[in-house]
Design a protein around this nucleic acid. Structure first.
Lengths: 344, 344
DNA sequence: TTGAAAGCGCTAACAT
DNA sequence: ATGTTAGCGCTTTCAA
């Protein structure tokens, strides 16, 4: 069935005016007499006239919508970031269209093509864990389409980026474990394709070495799907826990890695922190309700969404092509709880 | 800055054809010679032509987008439902635009007006906890706009609804507590404006009375914001726990109520289930990771999203106005875990 | 102060 | 087999 809305033409016919007069009256143009304006406005109100945004978009070549591609809205970090995005977009009169890649490269490409075919004015993207080839994003960017990366940025593409200091976050988390007396610290890492994974590993390794511990290759295990698939986390942890000098603490480097790590420990009856301590990157808002309560590295998700959106809208609304790009690096927050209780 | 995309006209000019020929060639019309088709297709491919969906929408009076209004995407139930919605919409070539009401009536009205001004072909909505007046939805519905309710439906509006058997879910949860030996069972309820709240209370009360226990007025406490605000949960629980015959078990009737209830117990050092047993409506996917692991009443969120979307698309694509509306009632699943361990 | 007409990108009825 | 044209709803130049 089709929903037939009222158009300017309907008003024009009903009032015996031309469409241009109605249009101008509705936009309160100086050319229209107060009397006519009044008639038009009142009639429009009465029949509940709403301008057709699609017609406007076609005319203005602007949809006043921005697209967002994330892996999963069910991930706390992303839902919080989306709230930040929404808050800014909304206040500036922009609509937000959300797509999920579910960590699939193929899906990301499809989403991107769909969104970019001009139903959006700009794009906020956090790339999928699976994505290795960025030409779909690059080509859009090359054609001048406004894109801002947040959280998971692509190093090789030069545009605005809003990220966190992953290196420092991982360093601090690792050092916190060391200072708490743990010696054999492992790193449950995300997809090796992501720059955030690389940065987190760098920080982790740096903390190990700076504090005079031995860096152990086998203590770092990757999960290609960023923890989305339990089996890959299980495999990674099985490998670590099978080591003769098995870890006494773990840094889990992403939201889903952290929760699936807890799931693993629970299923294997491994006690936290007695058998293995844990600190994980997580924006879960019930991290404090777990037992033991979970020590986390928390991202300023809401703020990241806001800043990314501000940058994007600035780009969209700028008259000429933007060539100076910002690289905003926000601090991470470490919240120490029971899961990384210091050894006596 | 403006992103200038390639149009059919560009192709027509470049190839010395008319726009209609190009249009037809692109849509593989029988009227166009294979040779011309080949030339057009290849050129389009080469310059990466994408049809402008906005122009299409204007022409067809259809945007191939559906709107979704939920209170919070950060709520597990809703993010799972959205995944279901997306899966169907996506496969049928529809785009999904998500708006959040954040449980605010005002915001819901704004979202609705925005979406309905014809940038969407239909709407899936789960009303906000605050909403008491439904005329904004009613008037759209009256004008023939396709709307499907899911989860939180409005009784007075006659359209497709996809809900769960809240009455039975609450009955089963309450009876489970009774059969486990608990005697003083309280109900932490959501917004009194929502029909789901009423149904859950009915089921709860019915279980109490059917099993020969005394129904106690003070054992039911409402939270207007559905648990979104911790303070209201705190106040409700304070009231219950201050009773001389304070409850020995609680049924928490919504996702956020459940988690905030746990937060309350934790802060007051109330042990679960020793001091008070707990079973809550929740779609949290880490309910099993809490300690004690959480007994839940779980909604088939993904399926609800799918079914609601199927109904909506059917309505959108039907030739004539739909007048027979379905009321799909899905079963709830009870998952018993440690938080409602039977009394010895 | 108001109206007529063109144009945004696309499709489709109507010519050739 | 291909081209011309009108029209989707709206804004805006140009004319009156």
């Amino acid at each position: 069935m089709k929903f037939e809305a009222v158009t300017i033409k309907d008003i024009a016919i009903a009032l015996g005016l031309s469409t241009s007069t109605v249009s101008r009256a509705l936009r309160d143009s100086y050319e229209i007499s107060p009397a006519t304006k009044k008639i038009v406005l009142e009639y429009a109100e009465q029949i509940n006239y709403r301008p057709n945004p699609i017609a406007l978009s076609l005319k203005e070549k602007r949809s006043h919508s921005i697209g967002v591609i994330v892996c999963e809205i069910a991930n706390s970090f992303f839902s919080q970031a989306i709230n930040g995005i929404e808050s800014i977009a909304y206040s500036k009169g922009y609509n937000v269209i959300i797509s999920q890649s579910h960590e699939s490269y193929e899906r990301e490409v499809i989403d991107l093509n769909y969104l970019a075919s001009r139903s959006i004015d700009g794009l906020l993207i956090s790339v999928s864990a699976e994505t290795e080839n960025f030409s779909h994003i690059q080509s859009l960017h090359d054609r001048g389409f406004p894109i801002v990366f947040f959280d998971r940025a692509v190093e090789s593409i030069d545009t605005h980026k809003v990220i966190v200091d992953n290196n420092k976050g991982a360093f601090d988390a690792t050092e916190h474990l060391i200072k708490s007396g743990y010696q054999r610290i492992a790193n449950l890492a995300g997809s090796p394709h992501l720059s955030i994974t690389k940065d987190r590993i760098k920080g982790y390794r740096n903390a190990i070495e700076t504090n005079g511990l031995h860096y152990e290759e086998a203590y770092t295990q990757y999960c290609l799907h960023g923890g989305m698939v339990y089996e890959e986390v299980e495999k990674a942890l099985d490998a670590m826990m099978a080591l003769s000098n098995k870890p006494d603490a773990i840094v889990a480097s992403a939201d889903k890695l952290t929760t699936n790590c807890i799931r693993y420990f629970k299923s294997k009856n491994i006690r936290v922190p007695e058998d293995v301590a844990l600190i994980g990157f997580s924006n879960l808002d019930i991290a404090d309700l777990l037992s033991p309560s979970l020590s986390v590295v928390r991202q300023p998700a809401f703020a990241m969404g806001q800043i990314a959106t501000e940058l994007l809208l600035k780009m969209i609304e700028s008259k000429r092509a933007v060539s100076e790009f910002e690289n905003r690096v926000l601090p991470l927050e470490i919240m120490v709880r029971e899961s990384s209780t210091p050894l006596k």
